[in-house]
Design a protein around this nucleic acid. Structure first.
Lengths: 111, 111
DNA sequence: TCTATTTATCGTATATTTACGATATTAAAT
DNA sequence: ATTTAATATCGTAAATATACGATAAATAGA
């Protein structure tokens, strides 16, 4: 991008955009749902369920971790991933905050 | 991407990822907030407030429109943009649905 | 009518994302 | 000790996203 202008926006808008970006690929949405339902937390089982190569799933997990939505621990030979509740709450609170603003004004629309 | 695997995921996960993608840039978060607060709905005024070129803002507005989160009408010389309530509700319901799943299991975490 | 204003679109350069195979690393199993 | 299994990382190719200036198109205003 010639230049990256993201830094020119407010911290809070950047943060919200980052959370949204973490969820902007169906693989990552699917991973979050798997972890949330706790049908599994082992990397290998997630790989089995998703239509992607092992290295690609690993990459998506890393991105979720980077965004803070997920945390991982090494369990012997395997890797265990879990939802990071604190950050997830924070993220969803921001979306809800937007929803509340919206509900307040819902009655009026100029177009 | 060699190949695009997004279509291999469930409709609902794709839809959620699309909403998230629409909000994955701080400029688009900022635009939604401006429209939600109804401090303005005229394209030109949005351009003035954001640290981006007119053509870039136009592009971001188009993406929000494509995701269904925003609708626009032409008003003489100008363009008016508004939140598309139906779709926005739908988007936020999906995020909330995820939140509810999370709250149910909150007490337990394996890592 | 002619000019200015407003916005969308086109073309394009650069950055980032997505995806995979190959390989490295580490623990488990034999 | 050697082999197998699980996962992360590296390198890389291709697709998308981001950003801008230039230009087109259409209305407003003189």
């Amino acid at each position: 991008m010639a230049q990256n202008k993201k830094a020119d926006f407010s911290e809070i808008d950047q943060e919200m955009a980052n959370f949204a970006k973490a969820l902007s690929h169906p693989a990552r949405v699917a991973i979050i749902k798997i972890l949330a339902a706790q049908s599994s937390c082992i990397c290998g089982e997630i790989v089995e369920v998703l239509p992607l190569a092992q290295s690609t799933v690993s990459q998506h997990l890393k991105e979720l971790q980077l965004a803070g939505l997920v945390k991982g621990t090494i369990d012997g030979n395997k890797s265990c991933y879990c939802i990071n509740w604190e950050t997830m709450q924070q993220a969803i609170q921001q979306f809800n905050g937007l929803l509340n603003t919206l509900n307040d004004r819902k009655t009026f629309s100029c177009c």
